[in-house]
Design a protein around this nucleic acid. Structure first.
Lengths: 204, 204
DNA sequence: ATAAAATTTGATTAAGTAATCAAAAAAATG
DNA sequence: CATTTTTTTGATTACTTAATCAAATTTTAT
């Protein structure tokens, strides 16, 4: 039952990886079970054996993608203790993750903008506020900085959205990347700090 | 040939409208010709008569959506002459458009994040810089303000992305809208002006 | 009104879809 | 080594898809 679960878990992981590759490769619309199976070098029936249905596979892939990116970003974020540095870390890590995880970034986009609940509600319209650990962390950092008198913010919620937007926008720069990740994240950090009138190290 | 074109054009317009409604309704994946035809109360073959293929229909719908929003936003933007007000107008008009054109907003998202070129390149990865009239206008405004010594901007390109990101983020707030359009656009304008050290009327 | 042209439809086609299932293969168990 | 359990497959299922086309309808022109 132990090793058994390991093997099962390994195969599920393999199928999820193939799903991510397929989504990046040909997009959500054409990412059929057949296409995913081909990339995993298995039969389509095996996917059905390990996952309840296509929706289930997509959902588990999404969950894996979210967890992976959140771990990466939050680890780097909380390497510091003060909100000013944390914010800089958060922005930099978010951009870096995208730049170094092309496939995962694309797959995440494909799922979020295509999948819908059984009731037909698109995932991107679901209230992310409660669930999204990244948004939560970002809001906490902003609240902290505000309390400590380091940030001057009107609405924390809206400032968080603006930061998320700036990060998200980098996702959409495709093909031959015209703006380097480092340049972009430094400049965005500078902009956000200025907007909050931070006397930061990069903002002098 | 004159009235003829009118009728043809009217039908095409009707089909494009049905496409937008369908995309908003059930999403790109399920927006088949049959579903679109049903909503237009016509046969599927009639769609094929007026459009080369599904891709063509989607492309023409996208073009219509882009033109409509660009006209709306740019008209309001250039009601003013100075870059500071223009920027405020641009942000406000962009948010307002989304808030008042739910269906069009959703349809645009569905197309941009789903459609791909024949070579398989997703539309959102296409280099928008050259074509997108909104980005072009935004960059011009920022350049103007910079030249006139009213904006302090490091990289105009990146500042434009940040603004676009803040606007785009509002698109993704779905369901029971937690933030009012007016509040959001005013706060964003304030943030961006502060980031560029603008002494604006709303920024005192 | 009649002929010609444009528009619209219903039926059909060929291809692809997710999911199921009995049977084969592999692995784990005693 | 034999047998039970888990894993995997190939074939089949019922269904949806975009696109085509001859025939019917409507519109336009004469």
């Amino acid at each position: 039952m132990n090793k058994n679960t390991f093997i099962q878990e390994a195969r599920k992981q393999q199928i999820i990886e193939a799903t991510i590759i397929t989504l990046d490769d040909i997009g959500y619309v054409k990412a059929s079970l057949a296409q995913i199976a081909k990339r995993a070098s298995i039969s389509t029936a095996l996917i059905s054996y390990h996952f309840a249905d296509r929706q289930d596979l997509i959902d588990q892939s999404l969950q894996a993608l979210i967890e992976q990116s959140a771990t990466f970003i939050l680890t780097k974020t909380y390497a510091a203790n003060d909100p000013v540095t944390q914010l800089g870390n958060f922005i930099e890590a978010s951009i870096t993750y995208q730049a170094t995880h092309e496939k995962e970034k694309a797959a995440l986009l494909e799922i979020v903008f295509n999948a819908r609940t059984t009731e037909g509600v698109p995932y991107y319209k679901l209230p992310d506020d409660d669930e999204d650990p990244l948004l939560k962390a970002l809001c906490n950092i902003l609240e902290d900085g505000k309390k400590q008198g380091k940030f001057f913010v009107g609405s924390v919620t809206i400032m968080a959205k603006v930061i998320q937007g700036a990060i998200g926008e980098y996702m959409l720069i495709g093909g031959p990347i015209s703006i380097e990740a480092e340049e972009y994240s430094e400049e965005v950090t500078k902009i956000i700090w200025t907007a909050m009138e931070v006397e930061g190290p990069k903002n002098a």
